[in-house]
Amino acid sequence: MLIQLFAATGVLAVLTVVPGPDMAVVTKRAVSSGWQDGLRTVGGITAGLMVWGVLAVAGLAAVLAASATAYTVFALAGAAYLVFLGFQALLQNRRGRFQAPAATLTPPRGNPWRTGLVSNVFNPKIAVFYTGLLPARAPTGLSAHSGMTLLVLVHAMLTAVWLGGYVMLLSKARSLFEKPAVRRGMDRATGTVLIGFGLQVATTQP
């Protein structure tokens, strides 16, 4: 059972570190308003994983993953939110809010924890991932529900540690990101990436 758990953890670790919408959302928040809001965003993302974990264990995520209509509705909602965040970053960039000292910069609107939660809850790929991959990786020495619950907790922990460490790494380079030219470049980059991820989610089939 331990060998199966280690193997599943390795797969989850690889999937966790691959850049995606979560990393783009965290980057935008941490660079714009500091590591505290960055960690709050990570907390929201982790909570979103727990929500999907509960749904997966209850069998509801499988219904979403199997229903093309439900998947499409969730995909479009999640895509719209990511595109909204992307345009928000680009709009901030266009307004040129980078001339004042960093301490006086207006942070992005919205609660960072809620931003992370919503961006993750409205990601239907998590439903497909939790119902398609996790059951096959669950340790055979445990019941189906217990094995799934364990892997969801492992994934949430890996996500929190990875993104939390990433936020703290960004904070070490805070002085670099405070420079107006760098801030403009980061907002352009994260805004474009978020819009790109949103369009990808909207056009990807289950």
Rank of each mutant, 00 (worst) to 15 (best):
P124W: 03
P124Q: 04
A127Y: 08
A127P: 08
V128D: 01
Y130S: 05
T131R: 10
T131W: 10
L133D: 03
L134I: 14
P135T: 09
A136N: 14
R137N: 08
R137C: 11
T140Y: 02
L142P: 00
S143I: 06
A144I: 10
A144R: 14
S146I: 10
G147Q: 09
M148V: 07
T149I: 13
L150S: 08
L151S: 07
L151W: 07
V152A: 12
V152D: 11
V152M: 11
V152K: 11
L153W: 12
L153H: 07
L153A: 15
V154N: 12
T159P: 01
T159H: 03
A160Y: 05
V161D: 13
L163N: 02
G165F: 02
V167A: 04
V167L: 04
M168C: 06
M168L: 15
L170W: 04
S171L: 00
S171P: 00
K172E: 10
A173M: 14
R174Y: 02
S175N: 14
F177C: 09
K179P: 06
P180N: 08
A181V: 12
V182K: 02
V182G: 10
V182Y: 09
R183D: 11
R188W: 15
G191V: 00
T192F: 06
T192H: 03
L194C: 02
L194V: 06
I195D: 00
I195R: 01
F197P: 01
F197K: 04
G198K: 06
L199I: 13
Q200E: 09
Q200C: 03
V201R: 10
